[in-house]
Each structure stands twice: as structure tokens, then as C-alpha cells.
């Protein structure tokens, strides 16, 4: 097990390096960090800045220098805010981790509940309704869902029901000068988490329904029923436990999707997380931030995939890691 994890991590190092080099090259080709000095009266300033940043050297040399400092923990400073990138990432990552955490919890819980319910009640009206809704959830662009959700929950519903106060908020994760886990936090959390997870709930619940139907038609389910185990117990102990296994793989693959979803979600709800940091950095050509972003996200995705494999082997002892 230990060697398996070690080997998997070692294999992914070159992949991350190649990806980060390509990104470095691409961003260097696209953006000129000296552009803001062009209006300067001092004719030598651009040349001095170019030399100071080492821009006259070949790209691989520049990349090597950047990488050396990155590994040492110096992630450079942002072009835009002049702030150390490590501080920016730490702050953004905390907001993002909260969103991702709640996103996964809500998606997994709802998707399993909906999928199992649909499978147990196959071809009934509730099954058709839920299946229809999951089709819509998959087809709906998440950013449109987010805007509609704001429109409905923050403006229409208070209007229709004559509420004095909005039931939800849609800017940031906390009201000004507030923090911690409380009602204010939950009010801010509802809409972004729904926006982040709506598409994923749709596809995971479809998947869970199919997996559950597979399991329910298995022989051991019939055996369990035949020997007199109550229906509810069969569904939960024999059914759901086995139907969860395939979902774990899908969940791991979709973690990347979740990070993509952060780009729009954080934009719509003005949450200062990794997604917003990426979009802002890209608009400004902020190379240090973009690089740090990519490496952090890549590590996240790799670790989650590995974690999924490990959980997989724990849930299903027939699977051997090799």
C-alpha cells in the first residue's frame, strides 16, 4: 500500500512539471511584464526591468530559476498586488476548500439519496420526476443556474411572500465584519454550493441510480430477501453499500470538474477563492499567480484521485492495488 502510494506520487511529478513548464512558456509568450513601463519617460527603464526579471534569458532558463525558488517556498510576488503569492494562495485556498468541502458533501449526499430512491421506486412517478430533473440539471449551464438562483431566492421569493429579509445572501461567504460558523455563513453558503454542485448532483444521481439497479438485480439481494431479511435492511446494508463503490471512481474524476466550476461560481458570488484568483490573474497576465494556481490545483486533483483509489480498495477488498 505504502509503495503503491509512493509510486503513484512519483509518476505524477513529471506530469506536473511538464504542465507547469508549458504554462510558463505560454504565459511568457502572451504577456509582457514590462508593458506597464512603456509610458515611462526613462528610456532605459524597460531594459533594466527586463534584466532584473531575467526576461532576456531563454524560456527554459527562466523556468528553471522560477522552479528552483518555487520548490524552496518562494512563490514570487503578484504583478498586480505586489503581494507574496504564498499569502494570496493561502487566503484563496481557505475559501475554496470550504466551497469544495460543502460541494462534495452536498453533492454526494443528495446524489446518493436521489439515486437510491429512484432505483428502489423504478418506473414510478417520483422516479420519472427525479430523472427528468437530473437531465435538466446536467444540461443546465451552472453559471445560468447561479444567476437564476439569485434572481429567485434573493429577489423573487421575498417579493412573492412579502418577506422583510432575504432568505439568502449572494456576495462573499460572510457579511462584513462577521466570521465563523453561524447562520450568516450558512445564508451565504447555500447558493454558491448549489451552483457548484447542481450539474454534479445530476450526473452522480443518474450514475448512482444505474449502479443501484445493477446491484438490486444481483443474486445475493434475492438470497437476502429469501432468507427473510427485511426489505429496508437489504436495500441499505446489501444494496447501497455495494452500489457506492462505482460512484467513488466517478467522484474522483469529477473533482477536476469541480475546480472548473469554481471559476464561474466564485465569479458570480464574489468569493475571493482560487477560481476568482485565476480569472483575475489571467486577465492581468500575472504569471506567478497562474503558476502557483496550476500547481496547487494539479496536486489537489492528483491527491483526490489517489484517495479515491485507496477508498475503493477499502470498500471493495476484491480490488488489489498494484
Amino acid at each position: 500500500m505504502f509503495f503503491y502510494v509512493l509510486r503513484r506520487l512519483l509518476i505524477s511529478i513529471p506530469v506536473v512539471l511538464i504542465a507547469s513548464f508549458l504554462l510558463f512558456w505560454f504565459v511568457r509568450e502572451t504577456f509582457d511584464p514590462t508593458a506597464r513601463l512603456r509610458t515611462s519617460r526613462d528610456p532605459t527603464v524597460i531594459q533594466r526591468e527586463t534584466e532584473r526579471l531575467g526576461l532576456d534569458k531563454p524560456i527554459p532558463v527562466q523556468y528553471g530559476k522560477w522552479l528552483k525558488e518555487f520548490v524552496k517556498g518562494d512563490w514570487g510576488t503578484s504583478n498586480r498586488t505586489r503581494e507574496p503569492v504564498t499569502d494570496m494562495v493561502r487566503r484563496a485556498l481557505w475559501n475554496t476548500v470550504q466551497l469544495i468541502f460543502w460541494g462534495i458533501v452536498v453533492s454526494a449526499f443528495l446524489a446518493v439519496a436521489v439515486g437510491v430512491f429512484s432505483a428502489v421506486r423504478q418506473y414510478t412517478i417520483p422516479d420519472y420526476v427525479l430523472t427528468g430533473l437530473s437531465y435538466i440539471a446536467i444540461a443546465m449551464p451552472p453559471f445560468w443556474f447561479g444567476l437564476l438562483a439569485i434572481n429567485l431566492a434573493a429577489f423573487k421569493i421575498p417579493e412573492w411572500f412579502d418577506l422583510d429579509e432575504r432568505p439568502v445572501d449572494f456576495v462573499g461567504l460572510h457579511s462584513a465584519r462577521k466570521s465563523g460558523f453561524n447562520k450568516d455563513y450558512l445564508r451565504h453558503l447555500v447558493l454558491p454550493v448549489m451552483t457548484l454542485s447542481v450539474q454534479i448532483i445530476g450526473s452522480w444521481s443518474r450514475f448512482q441510480r444505474a449502479a443501484m439497479l445493477d446491484v438490486l438485480s444481483a443474486d445475493y439481494i434475492r438470497t437476502a430477501r429469501a432468507k427473510g431479511v427485511p426489505r429496508g435492511k437489504v436495500i441499505f446494508k446489501h444494496g447501497v453499500r455495494n452500489a457506492l463503490i462505482p460512484l467513488i471512481t466517478v467522484m474522483a474524476v469529477d473533482i477536476g470538474l469541480l475546480f472548473g466550476g469554481l471559476l464561474v461560481t466564485e465569479q458570480i458570488f464574489s468569493i475571493a477563492g482560487m477560481g476568482k484568483m485565476f480569472v483575475d490573474a489571467l486577465l492581468q497576465g500575472d504569471i506567478a499567480v497562474l503558476e502557483a494556481w496550476m500547481i496547487v490545483v494539479a496536486i489537489f486533483v492528483i491527491v483526490f484521485n489517489l484517495l479515491a483509489d485507496l477508498i475503493y480498495s477499502v470498500l471493495d477488498p476484491r480490488i488489489r492495488l498494484s
Binding site: V15, I18, A19, F259, G260, L290, V297, A298
Partner: peptide, 13 residues
Amino acid sequence: LFLIVPAIAILAI
């Protein structure tokens, strides 16, 4: 390579 970085980010760049 393209599985570990979200597609939407690569496309945006």
C-alpha cells in the same frame, strides 16, 4: 496531462 488541470482553465488561457 490535460486530465489534471481543469479544461476550462486551459481553454481560458
